[in-house]
Simulated assay, not measured.
Amino acid sequence: MVLLTFYYYYIIYNSLGLEFFLSRIGNEMLKYQGYKYHLRHQTEMKRVWRCSKNYATQCKATLTTVYNELMKVTRIPYDVVLSQRGKRLIMVDGYTFSQTKSTYWTCSSKFANCKAKLKLNNKEEIIEINNVHSHEPRKYVKSSDDSFEFIELIGGKILLMAEGFTFAKASQRHWYCSKKSKGCKARVHFNAENTVIQYDNNHNHQKPVYKKLLNGHYMKCMS
Rank of each mutant, 00 (worst) to 15 (best):
L3N: 07
Y7M: 08
Y7E: 12
I12M: 12
I12V: 07
Y13L: 08
N14L: 02
S15I: 09
S15D: 13
F21H: 09
I25S: 14
G34E: 08
K36S: 13
Y37F: 15
H38Q: 11
L39S: 08
R40F: 05
R40W: 07
Q42C: 03
Q42T: 08
T43S: 15
T43E: 13
M45E: 13
K46H: 04
R47E: 12
W49H: 01
R50Y: 03
C51D: 05
S52D: 06
N54F: 11
Y55S: 08
Q58P: 00
K60V: 06
T62L: 10
T62K: 13
T64P: 00
T65E: 04
Y67D: 12
L70V: 11
P77C: 09
Y78T: 10
R85G: 12
R85C: 02
L89F: 05
I90D: 03
I90V: 14
I90H: 02
M91L: 11
T96W: 01
K101E: 13
K101L: 09
T106K: 15
S108V: 07
S108D: 14
K110V: 04
K110G: 08
F111K: 13
A112D: 07
N113I: 01
C114T: 07
K117P: 00
K117G: 00
K119N: 05
N122K: 10
E124D: 15
E125F: 03
I126N: 01
E128S: 14
E128N: 12
E128R: 05
I129A: 05
N130V: 02
S134P: 01
H135M: 11
P137T: 12
K139T: 07
V141P: 00
D146C: 13
S147M: 14
S147I: 05
F148Y: 14
F148Q: 00
F148R: 00
E149L: 08
E149D: 12
F150S: 10
I151P: 02
I154D: 07
I158N: 02
I158R: 03
L160K: 07
F167I: 03
A168P: 00
K169H: 01
S171D: 11
Q172Y: 04
Y176T: 11
C177E: 09
C177I: 10
S178D: 13
K179I: 01
K179P: 00
K180N: 09
K182P: 00
G183L: 05
G183N: 02
K185R: 12
A186S: 08
H189V: 15
F190S: 10
F190Y: 14
N194L: 03
T195I: 11
T195R: 15
V196Y: 01
I197G: 04
Y199K: 12
N201V: 04
N201H: 07
H203G: 10
Y210M: 09
L214I: 08
M219D: 08
K220H: 01
C221N: 06
M222R: 10
S223W: 04
